[in-house]
């Protein structure tokens, strides 16, 4: 049974349709990527999932039921527009927000110490939030999101404003959460992070689903019939290749419809070419994103 099920959700405002008949599901123990250009409807979709705004129609179930006060305690949410009580100390902020997720003071403080230590923020435990840098504030917000050991973690642009060290730290924690059977829904513009972390994705544009499924399968379906070859010496004429594109350090061979990469490799080896690298060309998610969004804009 899916952990998150969004069915035919529609949400419109006075002047535009933000989400149009959107459906998807997220399974337990996966990192699910929600991607799309600015204004695609990602944040609206997440807010509907979190019961912060109501859809015009459609249904959302999380952990097998409509969101209730009790089931809210089983979710962790890091919104895109996020902040903390500037005048409160780090530990008081964490304990208060954790208590709203059903944790008692003692457990919250114990877990906070553990997470602050893990993220290198323990020395700042007694500092006021306004004394922290923006990046440090984001780490505290992330701690608040996961402190109550939620079954589903929803993160909207979690890497925005983080330095590479903290980005890496966050990624490791997310992978660790997946390893513990938690479900993570990740919305971001950073395609490399999606490629690195996500098992499945949903790409939305203008409130509609435009790509949905396993990342590997999507990339495979967008694969052009070409191979990348890094070799020593000139390749010359290769049968079955209709175009040769030279890039810095490698050559991309565009194959005709009847030739497979395996046949090309065989031919190159047979004519004695020394090959350092040979791989089937797969478009990056960024290229797929641009292609799909571009098509939709046309």
């Amino acid at each position: 049974m899916p952990v998150v099920e969004v069915s035919n959700v529609v949400k419109s405002y006075a002047d535009k349709v933000a989400v149009s008949d959107l459906s998807f599901s997220v399974a337990q123990g996966e990192i699910f990527g929600l991607i799309g250009p600015n204004g695609a409807g990602k944040t609206t979709t997440i807010r509907i999932m979190m019961d912060i705004i109501k859809p015009d129609s459609g249904e959302v179930t999380i952990l097998g039921e409509k969101l209730t006060e009790a089931s809210k305690n089983r979710l962790g949410y890091l919104p895109e527009e996020r902040g903390l009580y500037r005048k409160l100390t780090v530990i008081d902020s964490i304990i208060y927000l954790a208590s709203l997720k059903g944790m008692d003071r003692y457990s919250a403080e114990e877990k906070a110490d553990e997470l602050l230590n893990h993220t290198g923020m323990l020395p700042y435990k007694g500092k006021k939030i306004e004394e922290l840098s923006r990046g440090m504030g984001q780490i505290i917000q992330f701690i608040v999101t996961i402190i109550h050991n939620p079954e589903v973690v929803v993160l909207d642009e979690p890497f925005a404003g983080l330095d590479p060290v903290n980005t890496d730290l966050l990624k490791r924690i997310l992978i660790d959460l997946r390893g513990k059977g938690k479900t993570v829904i990740l919305s971001t513009h950073q395609m490399n992070e999606i490629e690195e972390l996500c098992d499945r994705i949903l790409m939305i544009n203008q409130g509609r689903s435009v790509l949905y499924g396993k990342l590997k399968e999507i990339k495979s379906s967008y694969r052009s019939n070409s191979v990348i070859v890094d070799s020593e010496g000139d390749l010359g004429q290769v049968p079955g290749v209709i175009e040769k594109r030279t890039h810095k350090g490698y050559v991309e061979l565009i194959l005709d419809g009847n030739t497979t990469p395996k046949q090309v490799l065989k031919r190159l080896v047979s004519i004695g070419i020394v090959i350092n690298r040979f791989e089937v060309a797969t478009p990056s998610l960024n290229e797929i994103f641009l292609k799909v969004v571009g098509q939709n804009h046309e």
């Binding site: 979190m50 949410y77 996020r82 902040g83 500037r86 927000l97 709203l100």
Partner: peptide, 20 residues
């Protein structure tokens, strides 16, 4: 106003209802 300015509202509303 401070909770709105400090972008805390969405975090709070993911834990409690508007009425609470």
């Amino acid at each position: 106003g401070a909770e709105k300015e400090n972008r805390l509202m969405e975090i709070l509303l993911s834990s409690v209802s508007t009425r609470q």
